[in-house]
């Protein structure tokens, strides 16, 4: 799905989290929102997901105005920084949650739900853990379960907030490949937020560098390195 961000602005109290910001994301791209904390990258992601509302500006999904859509209507697969798994449900129940929450007419049969959950567990290469509770999983396993849960609703896009932030270095490397793989198999437009420039440059097709509520530069990793548009971008990429 092609996403168009048109002059989106957002303030929290008196501080401007996003100056009017515009951005066009081509269908099927893997995009990194890169910047230091307070740059507005998470706010932008949450606005796309329908968790935050802009004061002005529009969001267009495939050319249709989606600004007024509720979270539920957006059907964005959202992976939270700390995964936000439902701790009183098993992994299976977590992944099945979105399908079971659908109105009766759109809800798949019980067997169909089970089949899809099993398939997703295979996709994240954890076919054995359906019966476990989140408390019994490692950090990397939790992240992958959160990803599978977001994919279960057949999302129109995938939004990830610091998906590797809570993991140690070794697991982080492994899971980067995992995300790339899943992106390539599903073909979903995927946007992830990170403050780690190495991660953004290695993983993303398109990197959006943000600072103080503004977009500093948008480009492919190689272009950014070769032609940084500002001193900030140059310094941030070499840090």
């Amino acid at each position: 799905m092609h996403i168009e961000i048109d002059e989106i602005a957002k303030t929290f109290g008196r501080t401007a989290a996003l100056q009017p910001v515009s951005l066009s994301i081509p269908s099927g791209a893997l995009v990194a929102l890169l910047g230091p904390s307070g740059s507005g990258k998470t706010t932008l992601l949450r606005i796309l997901g329908g968790l935050e509302f802009p004061e002005s500006g529009r969001v267009l999904f495939d050319g249709h105005d989606a600004t007024g859509l509720t979270v539920q209507e957006r059907r964005a697969g959202f992976v939270f920084q700390n995964y936000a798994l439902f701790r009183h449900m098993t992994v299976f129940e977590n992944i099945a949650y979105g399908l079971k929450a659908r109105p009766r007419a759109l809800r798949p049969e019980k067997e169909e739900i089970a089949r899809r959950v099993t398939k997703l567990l295979e996709l994240i290469r954890l076919p054995e853990i359906g019966g476990r509770y989140p408390a019994q999983l490692s950090g990397g396993q939790r992240q992958r379960v959160a990803l599978a849960r977001a994919l279960a609703i057949e999302p129109r896009m995938l939004l990830l907030d610091e998906p590797f932030g809570a993991l140690d270095a070794k697991v982080r490397k492994e899971l980067r490949h995992g995300l790339r793989e899943i992106h390539d198999t599903t073909g979903l437009t995927t946007i992830f937020v990170t403050h780690d420039q190495e991660e953004a440059m290695e993983l993303a097709d398109l990197v959006v560098v943000m600072s103080m509520g503004r977009i500093e530069q948008v480009g492919r990793p190689a272009d950014l390195r070769a032609r940084p548009a500002s001193a900030f971008v140059r310094e941030f990429l070499t840090a």
């Binding site: 997901g49 329908g50 968790l51 979270v71 539920q72 957006r74 059907r75 964005a76 697969g77 959202f78 939270f80 920084q81 700390n82 936000a84 798994l85 439902f86 949650y97 979105g98 929450a101 659908r102 849960r149 977001a150 279960a152 609703i153």
Partner: peptide, 15 residues
Amino acid sequence: IDREVEEASATLGAS
């Protein structure tokens, strides 16, 4: 209660 958990539920389509 972690607000993110409630948000996660909403992003998955739950009323």
